[in-house]
Design a protein around this nucleic acid. Sequence first.
DNA 1: CCCTCAGGTTAACGACCGCTAACCTCCCTG
DNA 2: CAGGGAGGTTAGCGGTCGTTAACCTGAGGG
Lengths: 198, 198
Amino acid sequence: MATRTDAPTRREQILKEAARLFAERGFHGVGVDEIGAAVGISGPGLYRHFAGKDAMLAELLVGISGQLLTGAKRRLAEADGVASEAVLDSLIEGHIDFALDDRPLITLHDRELDRLRDSDRKLVRQLQRQYVELWVGVLREVHPGLAEPAARSAVHSVFGLLNSTPHLGRPGSLPGRGATAQLLHRMARGAFEAAGAE
Amino acid sequence: MATRTDAPTRREQILKEAARLFAERGFHGVGVDEIGAAVGISGPGLYRHFAGKDAMLAELLVGISGQLLTGAKRRLAEADGVASEAVLDSLIEGHIDFALDDRPLITLHDRELDRLRDSDRKLVRQLQRQYVELWVGVLREVHPGLAEPAARSAVHSVFGLLNSTPHLGRPGSLPGRGATAQLLHRMARGAFEAAGAE
DNA sequence: CCCTCAGGTTAACGACCGCTAACCTCCCTG
DNA sequence: CAGGGAGGTTAGCGGTCGTTAACCTGAGGG
């Protein structure tokens, strides 16, 4: 993967600040003037980069869902012939990285979906569903006794566990990123194992 | 506990509908006219019962936090001399009951806190903190090896897991309330045990 | 039998917000 | 060195929203 080293574009700046603000005060709670101010331009200047406030949210949510799904597919492809447990660990690791590095996005992801236009919402939901089903498939290889509906519930619940990072206090009060990641990983595995034990 | 059998007051109707609407579309996404319509009166009629829209949200959030804390304290008091594991199970059970029965409130609880006036927000946060610390205390009796910061993180994460119920599909697609409650309970226990195993 | 008051109603005000219009100003390029 | 587009600016429009004001009504009590 080509890691970005060049400066972020204005568009990217806007998206990042918008994500932070939306996560902090909700989509309707943030005005375009505030988003503009956060990147040093004023309100209507944003319309040179986005069709409207809705478009920013849409691009954020589609981007998140797509990124999660793409990452998961890649991890699945890389692990060809590897034990299912290792694949599940890889999925967990990827999700934790995302939850720890992009907390505002994780917050938006399950909070502002209903503010989207119908077509965008359908797209996001479809990406989310694919992501969930991918997890469900791997999980049921590791725990064959788990029925599909229960597996799906378990996956959603573990997402809830992993996505709890925004509630873990501001970065700094934590025991350190590595330790937190390990703790979350152990807990996710423990939760799955407990789900699998009928 | 005195179980209510008499008809709900108008105030209670309003709070219930407001909670549902706030959970569905966010605090700023719902107008007072909609809340009024949901209980059969029109917009400004609400002001005979509440000082304003903010006051409804405040009463909801304070109520939720207080209810959770009160329930937990009661469970702790009832279990005098009982094994710590059983107390932890009782706490989990109480939280699951709440998460399954009052999904809109659970959604609001960690989503709209920042929309409150300073004083109300402080009160809610204080109640939440007490609730968390109560769990942390019991958890560290069950798993003495768990350091306090890790225990607190673990508790927050399990809350995330248990509060995932709104994502589990509308009631009906689930394998049934009892089975879902049991699954969540097993997963919470599993997550805690994995957290305790250094 | 009137008075009161709880609990509604509609009209309207002021603030705010998303967005557009009109204009300006560099910078790049032929 | 003209010119044009990218990326800003401010002014302002139209709609929405929370809230208040003024008024209405039906039930209960002295």
